[in-house]
Design a protein around this nucleic acid. Structure first.
Ligand SMILES: [Zn+2]
Ligand SMILES: [Zn+2]
Ligand SMILES: [Zn+2]
Ligand SMILES: [Zn+2]
Lengths: 121, 121
DNA sequence: GGTGGAAATGAAAATCATTTTCATTTGTGC
DNA sequence: GCACAAATGAAAATGATTTTCATTTCCACC
């Protein structure tokens, strides 16, 4: 096991706390940081293990990583330009809790994302 | 565009209405059907377009196809044994619609899944 | 200040699902 | 049969992710 390279976490933060491994890598390159793609993957994986970041999947299957620990929230993502709006999920939280209880599930988490076309697209 | 090869749909049904493209392909091979992987992918894609099957993602990113029930629904998945319960998402539908409207998004869809440990695990 | 081993790194190769290309086959109406 | 469109599938391309493995960096101990 390897520990996470701190520059990876810092870059994920700077990216808005929401990006794929490839995006983190490209961002670091653009900013002149010297790092290998392998290390980016390893660091993100390690952050996931440590529950410092969440991982979910884009429609195309690419894994996207996001910081946990800020207020829990959800996303409204534009399929056209990729613009992302953070939104509140009060209704979802209640729904998830209720459904889990009803079916005897414990230790539950959830994902909920909305995809569509923004006003500009 | 191509139309779906009916043997693909029939195989997906036989697989319990829930399988990846690769699995459908392997199943057809094992049963002696002569078909190309490309056709399997094309047929499943076409079934998705026609809204005859849903597509979602495994944890590892592989796309899994499942026959649509009559109604739109969501899932409660056990992280331990993989058991899946179909659940209603009335609250989600309203939430998604409201959020999209509020931010000027159109043509929206959404995903919402709950995962945790079932009573047995 | 060495020195040895453990941990971290990254380039390149491997893996694997999925898509694209393109030549061939099949189907359909004339 | 003939022309032409749709369907098919083998092989190559793509692209994210993982694996391999040789090199570099750290660190504890002398
Ligand atoms: Zn947009
Ligand atoms: Zn939530
Ligand atoms: Zn279970
Ligand atoms: Zn829904």
């Amino acid at each position: 096991m390897s520990r996470s390279n701190p520059r990876v976490l810092s870059t994920l933060e700077r990216a808005g706390g929401f990006a794929s491994a490839q995006e983190v890598y490209r961002l670091m390159q653009r900013e002149g940081e010297s790092i290998g793609l392998t290390t980016v993957y390893r660091s993100l994986q390690s952050l996931v293990n440590d529950k410092i970041v969440d991982v979910l999947r884009r429609d195309d299957g690419e894994a996207i990583y996001r910081l946990c620990g800020e207020a829990h929230h959800h996303h409204l993502v534009c399929k056209g330009c990729g613009d992302t709006v953070e939104i509140e999920g009060g209704a979802i939280e209640k729904w998830a809790k209720m459904m889990a209880e009803e079916h005897g599930f414990r230790d539950v988490g959830h994902t909920a994302e909305i995809f569509g076309l923004c006003a500009k697209c």
